[in-house]
Simulated assay, not measured.
Amino acid sequence: MNSTINLRFPIGEMPSEKHPTSAQLEQWILTIEQFSSTLQEVVKDLSVDQLNWCYRAGGWSIKQLVHHCADSHMNSFIRFKLALTEEAPAIRPYFEDRWAELSDSLDDNIEDSLLLLRALHRKWVKLLKSLNQEELNRTFVHPEHGTSFSLVENIGIYAWHCNHHLAHVRLAIEAEGKLRGRPYL
């Protein structure tokens, strides 16, 4: 395993781009569009033992990462819908670390989460591609951060999120089970 990589943030910490170019926005949407099929391809031949491999000591297992992406992306999709139908709504944060310890996130069968991601991303991308500039500029308030996020900014955040957790899965596979995880802290 490459020791120069920051295992917690293998592609770097989450950037915040409030005014992307149209090319950047298209790339972000493409990343979101391809995520479920890319993830499916990366995990398709993994055994139950391999699904329990971690990308770093103290990090989530591959199965927890897959289940987390389904949970997180559902929340994000709902936040988009709220921002498009309400005036700067305050969204509800959730405890990702606690969700990752629930029985469905510890399930060795990841098929339902992969199916959910495939359908959700198809629906989400259809929505994203339909948004005009005014809609892209709509916002929601994240009380945990005490700030507003525009939908266009959030598209970039979730493109990063997709790549971030794909990198974690790949790192766990590369580590071949040598790293033991605990709940994400």
Rank of each mutant, 00 (worst) to 15 (best):
F35M: 08
V169Y: 04
S105R: 04
A167S: 11
R79Q: 05
L120D: 00
A100Q: 03
I173T: 05
Y184R: 09
I11Q: 02
P183W: 10
T38D: 10
L128K: 05
I110Q: 03
L115F: 14
Y184M: 13
E153Y: 06
A88R: 14
N109P: 08
S36D: 01
I110F: 12
F140V: 04
S22W: 08
E174F: 06
A57Q: 10
A83Q: 09
L114K: 11
T38Y: 08
N52K: 15
L117F: 10
L151M: 11
P143A: 07
E13N: 07
E33Q: 14
N137T: 12
L82N: 00
P93W: 02
L151K: 02
V42L: 11
F9L: 01
R56C: 05
R56P: 00
I5R: 04
L25T: 03
E41Y: 13
A100E: 03
A159G: 09
V43A: 07
N109C: 14
I78Y: 11
G59V: 01
L46I: 11
K123R: 15
W124R: 07
P89S: 07
G59C: 01
F140M: 06
E86I: 06
E13A: 09
A175K: 12
D108M: 02
V66D: 00
F80E: 00
K18G: 09
L171F: 01
R79Y: 06
R98N: 11
V66A: 02
L30C: 10
F80G: 04
Q27A: 13
H68Y: 05
N6R: 04
D49W: 02
I91E: 00
M1S: 10
H165A: 08
Q40E: 14
C162Y: 05
